[in-house]
Write a protein that binds this DNA or RNA. Structure first.
Length: 428
DNA sequence: TCTGGGGTCCTAGGACCC
DNA sequence: TCTGGGGTCCTAGGACCC
Protein backbone atom coordinates (compact mmCIF):
# COMPACT_ATOMS: atom_id res chain seq x y z
CA UNK A 1 0.00 0.00 0.00
CA UNK A 2 1.09 3.55 -0.47
CA UNK A 3 2.69 5.49 2.32
CA UNK A 4 -0.52 7.36 2.97
CA UNK A 5 -2.44 4.27 3.97
CA UNK A 6 -4.65 4.69 6.98
CA UNK A 7 -3.86 1.49 8.82
CA UNK A 8 -6.45 -0.11 11.05
CA UNK A 9 -4.89 -2.14 13.79
CA UNK A 10 -6.39 -4.44 16.40
CA UNK A 11 -4.36 -5.45 19.41
CA UNK A 12 -5.63 -7.98 21.88
CA UNK A 13 -4.20 -9.98 24.73
CA UNK A 14 -4.01 -13.74 24.56
CA UNK A 15 -5.97 -15.64 27.25
CA UNK A 16 -5.96 -12.38 29.15
CA UNK A 17 -7.17 -13.27 32.65
CA UNK A 18 -5.21 -16.50 32.74
CA UNK A 19 -2.10 -14.73 31.44
CA UNK A 20 -2.30 -12.07 34.14
CA UNK A 21 -2.59 -14.70 36.86
CA UNK A 22 0.48 -16.45 35.45
CA UNK A 23 2.52 -13.27 35.65
CA UNK A 24 2.72 -13.62 39.40
CA UNK A 25 3.15 -17.36 39.38
CA UNK A 26 6.04 -17.99 36.99
CA UNK A 27 6.16 -21.64 37.97
CA UNK A 28 2.79 -22.02 36.22
CA UNK A 29 4.07 -20.59 32.94
CA UNK A 30 3.52 -23.78 30.95
CA UNK A 31 0.80 -25.23 33.18
CA UNK A 32 -2.98 -25.29 32.60
CA UNK A 33 -4.66 -22.39 34.37
CA UNK A 34 -8.32 -21.37 34.63
CA UNK A 35 -9.96 -18.25 36.03
CA UNK A 36 -13.34 -18.64 37.72
CA UNK A 37 -16.45 -16.50 37.92
CA UNK A 38 -17.69 -14.82 41.06
CA UNK A 39 -18.40 -17.38 43.74
CA UNK A 40 -15.99 -19.70 41.93
CA UNK A 41 -18.96 -21.10 40.05
CA UNK A 42 -17.83 -21.62 36.49
CA UNK A 43 -14.74 -21.24 34.32
CA UNK A 44 -14.59 -17.92 32.47
CA UNK A 45 -11.06 -17.93 31.09
CA UNK A 46 -8.48 -20.57 30.20
CA UNK A 47 -4.82 -20.68 29.34
CA UNK A 48 -3.94 -22.42 26.07
CA UNK A 49 -2.74 -25.47 28.02
CA UNK A 50 -6.11 -25.71 29.76
CA UNK A 51 -7.96 -25.43 26.43
CA UNK A 52 -5.85 -28.23 25.00
CA UNK A 53 -6.83 -30.46 27.91
CA UNK A 54 -10.47 -30.01 26.91
CA UNK A 55 -11.63 -27.59 29.60
CA UNK A 56 -14.18 -25.08 28.38
CA UNK A 57 -15.49 -21.70 29.24
CA UNK A 58 -18.74 -22.23 31.15
CA UNK A 59 -17.74 -25.52 32.76
CA UNK A 60 -19.28 -25.74 36.25
CA UNK A 61 -16.45 -26.21 38.69
CA UNK A 62 -18.34 -28.50 41.04
CA UNK A 63 -19.17 -30.89 38.21
CA UNK A 64 -15.61 -31.34 37.02
CA UNK A 65 -13.73 -31.67 40.30
CA UNK A 66 -12.31 -35.00 39.23
CA UNK A 67 -10.85 -33.71 35.94
CA UNK A 68 -9.48 -30.66 37.69
CA UNK A 69 -7.59 -32.89 40.09
CA UNK A 70 -6.47 -35.45 37.54
CA UNK A 71 -5.31 -32.96 34.95
CA UNK A 72 -3.84 -30.64 37.56
CA UNK A 73 -5.75 -27.57 36.44
CA UNK A 74 -4.74 -24.54 38.51
CA UNK A 75 -7.70 -22.43 39.55
CA UNK A 76 -7.93 -18.73 40.29
CA UNK A 77 -10.93 -16.74 41.51
CA UNK A 78 -11.53 -13.74 39.30
CA UNK A 79 -9.63 -10.65 40.35
CA UNK A 80 -11.04 -7.91 38.17
CA UNK A 81 -9.21 -5.09 39.88
CA UNK A 82 -5.97 -6.75 38.87
CA UNK A 83 -7.12 -7.37 35.28
CA UNK A 84 -8.33 -3.79 34.85
CA UNK A 85 -5.03 -2.53 36.12
CA UNK A 86 -3.15 -4.64 33.55
CA UNK A 87 -5.54 -3.53 30.85
CA UNK A 88 -4.83 0.08 31.67
CA UNK A 89 -1.08 -0.48 31.69
CA UNK A 90 -1.13 -2.22 28.30
CA UNK A 91 -3.14 0.66 26.89
CA UNK A 92 -0.56 3.10 28.22
CA UNK A 93 2.30 1.17 26.67
CA UNK A 94 0.58 1.08 23.28
CA UNK A 95 -0.14 4.80 23.59
CA UNK A 96 3.56 5.58 23.78
CA UNK A 97 3.95 4.46 20.16
CA UNK A 98 0.52 5.29 18.74
CA UNK A 99 -1.62 8.35 19.31
CA UNK A 100 -5.00 7.08 18.19
CA UNK A 101 -5.70 4.27 20.62
CA UNK A 102 -9.24 3.37 21.50
CA UNK A 103 -10.05 0.75 24.07
CA UNK A 104 -12.72 -1.67 22.91
CA UNK A 105 -12.90 -4.18 25.74
CA UNK A 106 -10.80 -5.16 28.71
CA UNK A 107 -8.35 -7.05 26.50
CA UNK A 108 -8.77 -5.43 23.11
CA UNK A 109 -8.03 -2.08 21.50
CA UNK A 110 -8.26 -0.32 18.15
CA UNK A 111 -5.43 1.74 16.78
CA UNK A 112 -5.43 3.81 13.61
CA UNK A 113 -2.20 5.00 12.07
CA UNK A 114 -1.29 6.69 8.84
CA UNK A 115 2.32 7.73 9.23
CA UNK A 116 3.92 4.43 8.29
CA UNK A 117 6.57 4.98 5.62
CA UNK A 118 6.24 1.41 4.45
CA UNK A 119 4.79 -1.93 5.43
CA UNK A 120 8.16 -2.83 6.92
CA UNK A 121 8.14 0.33 8.97
CA UNK A 122 4.70 -0.55 10.29
CA UNK A 123 5.81 -4.10 11.02
CA UNK A 124 8.76 -2.83 13.01
CA UNK A 125 6.52 -0.57 15.07
CA UNK A 126 4.03 -3.32 15.79
CA UNK A 127 6.77 -5.74 16.78
CA UNK A 128 8.16 -3.12 19.09
CA UNK A 129 4.77 -2.57 20.72
CA UNK A 130 4.26 -6.29 21.17
CA UNK A 131 7.72 -6.58 22.65
CA UNK A 132 7.27 -3.57 24.95
CA UNK A 133 4.01 -4.96 26.29
CA UNK A 134 5.61 -8.31 26.97
CA UNK A 135 8.71 -6.84 28.57
CA UNK A 136 6.70 -4.66 30.90
CA UNK A 137 3.71 -6.85 31.70
CA UNK A 138 4.67 -10.40 30.66
CA UNK A 139 1.41 -10.60 28.73
CA UNK A 140 1.46 -11.66 25.09
CA UNK A 141 -0.66 -9.70 22.63
CA UNK A 142 -1.68 -10.52 19.07
CA UNK A 143 -1.78 -7.77 16.48
CA UNK A 144 -3.63 -7.63 13.17
CA UNK A 145 -3.33 -4.75 10.70
CA UNK A 146 -5.09 -4.02 7.41
CA UNK A 147 -6.85 -1.25 5.57
CA UNK A 148 -10.17 -1.80 7.36
CA UNK A 149 -11.17 -2.82 10.88
CA UNK A 150 -12.95 -5.97 9.79
CA UNK A 151 -9.88 -7.08 7.85
CA UNK A 152 -7.66 -6.17 10.80
CA UNK A 153 -9.76 -8.51 12.91
CA UNK A 154 -9.27 -11.26 10.34
CA UNK A 155 -5.53 -10.71 10.44
CA UNK A 156 -5.63 -10.60 14.23
CA UNK A 157 -7.03 -14.12 14.22
CA UNK A 158 -4.28 -15.27 11.87
CA UNK A 159 -1.74 -13.67 14.20
CA UNK A 160 -3.21 -15.57 17.10
CA UNK A 161 -3.67 -18.98 15.53
CA UNK A 162 -0.88 -19.34 13.02
CA UNK A 163 2.49 -19.45 14.75
CA UNK A 164 4.33 -18.41 11.59
CA UNK A 165 3.11 -14.84 12.07
CA UNK A 166 4.77 -14.61 15.49
CA UNK A 167 1.87 -12.56 16.78
CA UNK A 168 1.87 -9.80 14.14
CA UNK A 169 -0.11 -10.26 10.92
CA UNK A 170 -0.38 -7.49 8.36
CA UNK A 171 -2.49 -7.55 5.23
CA UNK A 172 0.08 -5.71 3.16
CA UNK A 173 -1.99 -4.99 0.15
CA UNK A 174 -5.56 -5.35 -0.98
CA UNK A 175 -4.15 -7.42 -3.86
CA UNK A 176 -3.62 -10.12 -1.27
CA UNK A 177 -7.23 -10.08 -0.11
CA UNK A 178 -8.23 -13.27 -1.86
CA UNK A 179 -5.42 -15.20 -0.26
CA UNK A 180 -6.31 -13.97 3.21
CA UNK A 181 -10.05 -14.52 2.89
CA UNK A 182 -10.19 -17.71 0.84
CA UNK A 183 -9.39 -19.93 3.79
CA UNK A 184 -11.14 -17.82 6.37
CA UNK A 185 -14.44 -19.34 7.59
CA UNK A 186 -17.25 -16.86 7.10
CA UNK A 187 -18.64 -17.51 10.58
CA UNK A 188 -15.46 -16.06 12.09
CA UNK A 189 -15.94 -12.73 10.35
CA UNK A 190 -16.83 -9.88 12.67
CA UNK A 191 -20.51 -9.07 12.31
CA UNK A 192 -21.62 -12.43 10.94
CA UNK A 193 -23.60 -14.06 13.68
CA UNK A 194 -24.65 -17.63 14.02
CA UNK A 195 -27.97 -16.93 12.36
CA UNK A 196 -26.17 -15.32 9.48
CA UNK A 197 -23.89 -18.31 9.13
CA UNK A 198 -26.86 -20.65 8.74
CA UNK A 199 -28.32 -18.52 6.01
CA UNK A 200 -24.97 -18.37 4.24
CA UNK A 201 -24.49 -22.11 4.44
CA UNK A 202 -27.85 -22.63 2.77
CA UNK A 203 -26.54 -20.48 -0.05
CA UNK A 204 -23.33 -22.48 -0.20
CA UNK A 205 -21.19 -19.65 1.10
CA UNK A 206 -18.47 -20.87 3.43
CA UNK A 207 -15.55 -18.49 3.24
CA UNK A 208 -15.13 -14.79 3.85
CA UNK A 209 -14.01 -14.43 0.25
CA UNK A 210 -17.21 -15.97 -1.14
CA UNK A 211 -19.29 -13.63 0.99
CA UNK A 212 -17.37 -10.55 -0.06
CA UNK A 213 -17.88 -11.38 -3.73
CA UNK A 214 -21.69 -11.55 -3.63
CA UNK A 215 -23.63 -8.73 -5.25
CA UNK A 216 -24.50 -5.76 -3.08
CA UNK A 217 -28.20 -6.16 -3.78
CA UNK A 218 -28.16 -9.79 -2.68
CA UNK A 219 -26.30 -8.98 0.52
CA UNK A 220 -28.53 -6.03 1.32
CA UNK A 221 -31.62 -8.16 0.82
CA UNK A 222 -30.51 -10.98 3.11
CA UNK A 223 -28.25 -9.18 5.57
CA UNK A 224 -29.45 -5.58 5.51
CA UNK A 225 -27.13 -2.60 5.40
CA UNK A 226 -25.10 -3.96 8.30
CA UNK A 227 -24.14 -7.04 6.28
CA UNK A 228 -23.32 -4.85 3.31
CA UNK A 229 -20.96 -2.81 5.41
CA UNK A 230 -19.19 -5.96 6.51
CA UNK A 231 -18.84 -7.07 2.89
CA UNK A 232 -17.40 -3.71 1.88
CA UNK A 233 -14.90 -3.85 4.70
CA UNK A 234 -13.84 -7.29 3.49
CA UNK A 235 -13.26 -5.76 0.06
CA UNK A 236 -10.92 -3.23 1.63
CA UNK A 237 -13.35 -0.32 1.73
CA UNK A 238 -13.84 1.36 5.09
CA UNK A 239 -17.49 1.21 6.07
CA UNK A 240 -17.57 1.01 9.87
CA UNK A 241 -16.38 3.43 12.49
CA UNK A 242 -15.22 2.81 16.00
CA UNK A 243 -18.49 4.31 17.16
CA UNK A 244 -20.32 1.46 15.40
CA UNK A 245 -18.49 -0.97 17.64
CA UNK A 246 -18.62 1.11 20.78
CA UNK A 247 -22.33 1.77 20.74
CA UNK A 248 -23.83 3.01 23.92
CA UNK A 249 -25.65 0.39 25.91
CA UNK A 250 -29.41 0.22 25.67
CA UNK A 251 -29.72 -1.20 29.13
CA UNK A 252 -27.34 -1.49 32.04
CA UNK A 253 -27.55 -4.29 34.52
CA UNK A 254 -25.80 -4.90 37.77
CA UNK A 255 -26.42 -8.07 39.69
CA UNK A 256 -24.59 -10.56 41.82
CA UNK A 257 -25.04 -13.95 43.36
CA UNK A 258 -24.48 -13.91 47.08
CA UNK A 259 -21.84 -16.05 48.73
CA UNK A 260 -24.42 -17.23 51.22
CA UNK A 261 -28.16 -16.85 51.42
CA UNK A 262 -29.40 -13.37 52.29
CA UNK A 263 -32.48 -13.52 54.45
CA UNK A 264 -33.41 -10.13 55.73
CA UNK A 265 -34.72 -7.08 53.99
CA UNK A 266 -32.08 -4.75 55.29
CA UNK A 267 -29.18 -6.75 53.86
CA UNK A 268 -30.90 -7.16 50.53
CA UNK A 269 -31.53 -3.44 50.45
CA UNK A 270 -27.88 -2.68 51.14
CA UNK A 271 -26.80 -4.98 48.32
CA UNK A 272 -29.30 -3.39 45.97
CA UNK A 273 -27.97 0.05 46.84
CA UNK A 274 -24.52 -1.10 45.74
CA UNK A 275 -25.87 -2.42 42.46
CA UNK A 276 -27.69 0.83 41.74
CA UNK A 277 -24.58 2.81 42.50
CA UNK A 278 -22.56 0.75 40.03
CA UNK A 279 -25.19 0.83 37.31
CA UNK A 280 -25.84 4.57 37.66
CA UNK A 281 -22.16 5.29 37.42
CA UNK A 282 -21.95 3.40 34.13
CA UNK A 283 -25.03 5.24 32.93
CA UNK A 284 -23.47 8.62 33.65
CA UNK A 285 -20.23 7.52 32.05
CA UNK A 286 -21.96 7.00 28.72
CA UNK A 287 -23.78 10.30 29.23
CA UNK A 288 -27.22 8.76 29.23
CA UNK A 289 -30.22 9.14 31.46
CA UNK A 290 -32.76 6.41 32.08
CA UNK A 291 -36.49 6.19 32.54
CA UNK A 292 -37.08 2.68 33.86
CA UNK A 293 -35.64 0.79 36.79
CA UNK A 294 -36.12 -2.96 37.15
CA UNK A 295 -35.34 -4.85 40.31
CA UNK A 296 -35.17 -8.62 40.50
CA UNK A 297 -34.55 -11.18 43.20
CA UNK A 298 -34.28 -14.93 43.20
CA UNK A 299 -34.06 -17.31 46.10
CA UNK A 300 -32.78 -20.81 46.64
CA UNK A 301 -35.35 -23.45 45.75
CA UNK A 302 -36.97 -25.28 48.67
CA UNK A 303 -35.87 -28.90 49.12
CA UNK A 304 -36.91 -31.11 46.25
CA UNK A 305 -38.00 -28.28 44.04
CA UNK A 306 -36.37 -26.94 40.95
CA UNK A 307 -37.09 -23.26 41.27
CA UNK A 308 -37.13 -20.89 44.15
CA UNK A 309 -39.00 -17.62 44.40
CA UNK A 310 -38.18 -15.42 41.41
CA UNK A 311 -39.64 -12.02 40.87
CA UNK A 312 -38.87 -8.86 39.05
CA UNK A 313 -40.60 -5.55 38.86
CA UNK A 314 -40.15 -2.61 36.55
CA UNK A 315 -40.88 0.92 37.71
CA UNK A 316 -40.74 4.24 35.93
CA UNK A 317 -38.91 7.27 37.14
CA UNK A 318 -41.00 10.43 37.07
CA UNK A 319 -38.42 11.87 34.68
CA UNK A 320 -35.22 10.73 32.98
CA UNK A 321 -32.45 10.57 35.54
CA UNK A 322 -28.97 9.30 36.16
CA UNK A 323 -28.40 10.28 39.75
CA UNK A 324 -27.96 7.51 42.27
CA UNK A 325 -30.28 9.04 44.84
CA UNK A 326 -33.39 9.09 42.67
CA UNK A 327 -32.72 5.73 41.08
CA UNK A 328 -32.07 4.18 44.47
CA UNK A 329 -35.34 5.56 45.82
CA UNK A 330 -37.29 3.97 42.98
CA UNK A 331 -35.34 0.72 43.25
CA UNK A 332 -36.18 0.49 46.95
CA UNK A 333 -39.86 0.97 46.16
CA UNK A 334 -39.56 -1.95 43.77
CA UNK A 335 -37.77 -4.14 46.26
CA UNK A 336 -40.37 -3.42 48.88
CA UNK A 337 -43.06 -4.68 46.54
CA UNK A 338 -41.37 -7.93 45.58
CA UNK A 339 -39.64 -8.81 48.82
CA UNK A 340 -41.08 -11.91 50.44
CA UNK A 341 -40.24 -12.66 54.04
CA UNK A 342 -38.83 -16.09 54.80
CA UNK A 343 -37.06 -16.59 51.47
CA UNK A 344 -33.35 -17.37 51.29
CA UNK A 345 -32.20 -15.03 48.56
CA UNK A 346 -29.32 -16.13 46.39
CA UNK A 347 -29.21 -13.35 43.84
CA UNK A 348 -30.51 -9.87 43.20
CA UNK A 349 -29.93 -7.13 40.72
CA UNK A 350 -31.05 -3.96 39.02
CA UNK A 351 -31.53 -3.12 35.35
CA UNK A 352 -31.71 0.43 34.07
CA UNK A 353 -33.56 0.85 30.78
CA UNK A 354 -35.08 3.28 28.28
CA UNK A 355 -32.17 5.60 27.81
CA UNK A 356 -31.87 8.89 26.15
CA UNK A 357 -28.85 11.08 25.86
CA UNK A 358 -28.20 13.69 28.52
CA UNK A 359 -28.15 16.46 25.93
CA UNK A 360 -31.25 15.38 24.05
CA UNK A 361 -33.23 15.44 27.20
CA UNK A 362 -36.35 17.52 26.88
CA UNK A 363 -37.64 18.70 30.18
CA UNK A 364 -41.34 18.58 30.53
CA UNK A 365 -43.18 21.55 31.92
CA UNK A 366 -43.67 19.77 35.21
CA UNK A 367 -40.08 18.87 35.85
CA UNK A 368 -38.17 20.79 38.38
CA UNK A 369 -35.26 21.81 36.21
CA UNK A 370 -33.39 23.47 38.98
CA UNK A 371 -33.49 20.35 41.10
CA UNK A 372 -32.37 18.12 38.25
CA UNK A 373 -29.47 20.41 37.48
CA UNK A 374 -28.48 20.44 41.10
CA UNK A 375 -28.30 16.65 41.24
CA UNK A 376 -26.48 16.49 37.94
CA UNK A 377 -23.81 18.85 39.21
CA UNK A 378 -23.58 16.96 42.46
CA UNK A 379 -23.01 13.68 40.67
CA UNK A 380 -20.37 15.10 38.40
CA UNK A 381 -18.46 15.80 41.56
CA UNK A 382 -19.24 12.39 43.03
CA UNK A 383 -17.97 10.62 39.93
CA UNK A 384 -14.84 12.71 39.93
CA UNK A 385 -14.07 11.89 43.52
CA UNK A 386 -14.88 8.23 43.03
CA UNK A 387 -12.50 8.04 40.12
CA UNK A 388 -9.67 9.86 41.81
CA UNK A 389 -9.58 9.94 45.54
CA UNK A 390 -11.78 7.35 47.10
CA UNK A 391 -15.45 6.57 47.27
CA UNK A 392 -18.57 8.36 48.40
CA UNK A 393 -21.28 6.14 49.74
CA UNK A 394 -24.93 6.57 50.43
CA UNK A 395 -25.65 5.86 54.07
CA UNK A 396 -27.63 2.75 53.24
CA UNK A 397 -24.81 1.05 51.38
CA UNK A 398 -23.02 -1.67 53.19
CA UNK A 399 -19.49 -0.46 52.95
CA UNK A 400 -17.63 -3.51 54.12
CA UNK A 401 -19.77 -5.72 51.89
CA UNK A 402 -19.74 -8.27 54.68
CA UNK A 403 -23.31 -9.37 54.23
CA UNK A 404 -23.14 -10.13 50.56
CA UNK A 405 -19.51 -11.01 50.25
CA UNK A 406 -18.90 -13.31 47.36
CA UNK A 407 -17.00 -16.53 47.66
CA UNK A 408 -13.46 -16.22 46.35
CA UNK A 409 -11.58 -19.27 47.50
CA UNK A 410 -8.84 -19.09 44.90
CA UNK A 411 -8.24 -15.38 44.84
CA UNK A 412 -4.84 -14.04 43.95
CA UNK A 413 -3.69 -10.91 45.76
CA UNK A 414 -4.17 -7.45 44.27
CA UNK A 415 -0.49 -7.30 43.55
CA UNK A 416 -0.48 -4.05 41.68
CA UNK A 417 -3.19 -1.97 43.23
CA UNK A 418 -3.33 -2.75 46.92
CA UNK A 419 -0.30 -1.73 48.91
CA UNK A 420 -1.02 -4.37 51.54
CA UNK A 421 -0.85 -7.08 48.93
CA UNK A 422 2.20 -6.13 46.91
CA UNK A 423 4.25 -9.07 45.82
CA UNK A 424 6.74 -10.03 48.47
CA UNK A 425 10.01 -11.22 47.08
CA UNK A 426 11.90 -13.64 49.21
CA UNK A 427 15.46 -12.41 49.19
CA UNK A 428 16.48 -15.68 50.90
C1' DT B 1 -24.01 -27.42 49.56
C1' DC B 2 -24.60 -27.26 44.31
C1' DT B 3 -23.49 -23.06 38.39
C1' DG B 4 -21.34 -15.46 36.58
C1' DG B 5 -22.32 -11.28 34.87
C1' DG B 6 -23.65 -8.47 31.31
C1' DG B 7 -25.46 -7.74 27.00
C1' DT B 8 -28.42 -8.36 22.40
C1' DC B 9 -31.94 -10.13 19.67
C1' DC B 10 -35.87 -13.12 18.55
C1' DT B 11 -40.20 -15.26 19.45
C1' DA B 12 -44.48 -16.74 21.44
C1' DG B 13 -48.34 -15.38 23.49
C1' DG B 14 -51.50 -12.16 25.75
C1' DA B 15 -54.02 -7.77 25.63
C1' DC B 16 -56.27 -5.00 22.90
C1' DC B 17 -58.42 -3.04 18.84
C1' DC B 18 -61.36 -2.74 14.67
C1' DT C 1 -77.49 -22.52 19.78
C1' DC C 2 -72.40 -20.20 20.72
C1' DT C 3 -67.92 -17.06 19.82
C1' DG C 4 -64.06 -14.18 13.08
C1' DG C 5 -60.13 -12.66 11.41
C1' DG C 6 -56.52 -9.91 11.33
C1' DG C 7 -53.59 -6.61 12.97
C1' DT C 8 -50.39 -4.09 16.53
C1' DC C 9 -47.98 -3.61 20.66
C1' DC C 10 -45.95 -5.20 24.72
C1' DT C 11 -43.67 -8.42 27.71
C1' DA C 12 -41.38 -12.42 29.50
C1' DG C 13 -38.44 -15.71 28.47
C1' DG C 14 -35.13 -18.13 25.76
C1' DA C 15 -31.07 -18.51 22.80
C1' DC C 16 -26.91 -16.95 22.22
C1' DC C 17 -22.45 -14.44 22.81
C1' DC C 18 -18.13 -13.30 25.36
Amino acid sequence: MSNTTQWQIIIDANSFYASVEKVFRPELRTKPVAVLSNNDGIIVALSSEAKELGFKRGDAVHLIQKEIREKKLHLFSSNYILYYDFSRRIEQIVSRTFVHVQKYSIDEMFVSYKSAKSVEHLRALLKKVKNDVFQETKVHVSIGAASTKTLAKVMNQYAKKDKRYKGVAILQDNELLKRALDKFPVENVWGIGRRGTEKLRLNNIHTAWQFSQKHDSWIRKHFTVTGLRTAKELRGINAVTIADFLQDKKSIMCSRSFGQAVKNYKDLKAALADFVEEAAEKLRKQKSVCKTVSVFVSSYPPKGEKYGYRKNIQLELPYFASDTIHITTIAFMGLERIFKTGERYKKAGVILGEFTSEQNLQYSLWDNIEKIQKYRNLYQKVDFINSSEGRIYLAVQNIDNAKHAIKLNHKSPQYTTNIAEVLKIDMG
